[in-house]
Design a protein around this nucleic acid. Structure first.
Lengths: 184, 184
DNA sequence: GGAACTTAACCGACCGGACGGTACAGAGAT
DNA sequence: ATCTCTGTACCGTCCGGTCGGTTAAGTTCC
């Protein structure tokens, strides 16, 4: 029998832990992610966290994996036939994380601060995406401008940098969409 | 006489300390900025560092101040009569930091990780800049796109994210310049 | 069925090291 | 002598990681 073990919650503990880590990062900053804090937030003990993630690096790496998975999923949602498909997906991913209060992007900061090499999987993923985007756009610099603007948007939200107000932001998003539309 | 005390180097020790902090951040990541490490890198002892910066917060804050000062200086270099002057300055600041191996931007990460509130001065500065940029551009969304792209560029370099190669980057820079030129 | 054992999941005390900060003594210059 | 700066020893705390339990569920054998 593959019964769900004896856990009160059927949900995997690892997910709860990652969620807790994101919540802490969003609430108190990436630097406040400690194993004890995560344990408390997730409602179990330090030992429990370390049972699921043998090291803190593994935890942060798990956060990043989760982020990449969400990103990929978001990419997959873009209709097949769209031109500049990957680029559209990038934009949607960022817009989607806009109103998420447990922002996944915070994992980037946490990882970068503790060990920059944790970003390697992110880098390879982005390299792959970028290649596709650039080949889709046939070398138009506007594609790269769009990529950069989207990245800028992400960090702006992440660090609470000024965004010029809601109307400006909407104007930017609209403009980005037309840039992407005109790429083909 | 404002002789520089008895130090072997006439340069202010604070500068050396900040430089050391930047070097460490660039080499090993923002999280590795510790007082001892900075002291060793700067060639003095922990006490020496703490004499110049009474707390670590003060050190990080100093890093950020230095970054903002450099940014302001870079802005001031843009000829008075240029349209979209502030925006041009932003671009130049980023391009300038491109080949600096002790990247100032790393301070942003260090600060954000340890205490997000350290970014407040940066936020107010950017808010001010952004206001000027947007009023210069008279509401054109392209101005904000450019701002975001520049920000994206900064973080791309900071985190060693893929950039599509040198020619792409140059194409982007050129494109950014024409976007800015067309703003007026 | 039930005793004996294994395994999964988790707890929490503890350790060692790192790190921020303090105290204080001493060295130079004036 | 005094003021300014620097070195060093030290303290308390925090944090990552280890480890020996403990509990409950599953498995095996009779």
């Amino acid at each position: 029998m593959t019964m769900r073990k004896h856990s009160a919650e059927p949900r995997n503990a690892s997910l709860k832990i990652l969620e807790a880590a994101r919540a802490i990062a969003a609430r108190e900053g990436a630097g406040k992610i400690t194993i004890e804090a995560v344990a408390k937030e997730a409602g179990l003990s330090k030992g429990g966290v370390l049972y699921n993630f043998p090291t803190k690096k593994a935890l942060l790496s798990g956060l990043l994996d989760q982020m990449l998975a969400a990103h990929r999923e978001s990419l997959a949602k873009v209709p097949e036939r769209q031109p500049a498909r990957t680029l559209r997906g990038h934009l949607e991913t960022v817009l989607q994380s806009q109103d998420l209060d447990d922002d996944l992007s915070m994992a980037i900061l946490a990882a970068a601060a503790s060990d920059p090499r944790l970003l390697d999987p992110l880098r390879t993923e982005l390299t792959c995406d970028l290649e596709r985007i650039l080949s889709d756009a046939k070398g138009s610099p506007d594609a790269m401008i769009a990529v950069l603007a989207i990245q800028g948007l992400r960090f702006q939200m992440l660090l609470n940098l000024p965004d010029g107000g809601a109307d400006i932001r909407e104007g930017v998003i609209e403009r980005l969409r037309t840039i992407i539309d005109e790429l083909e």
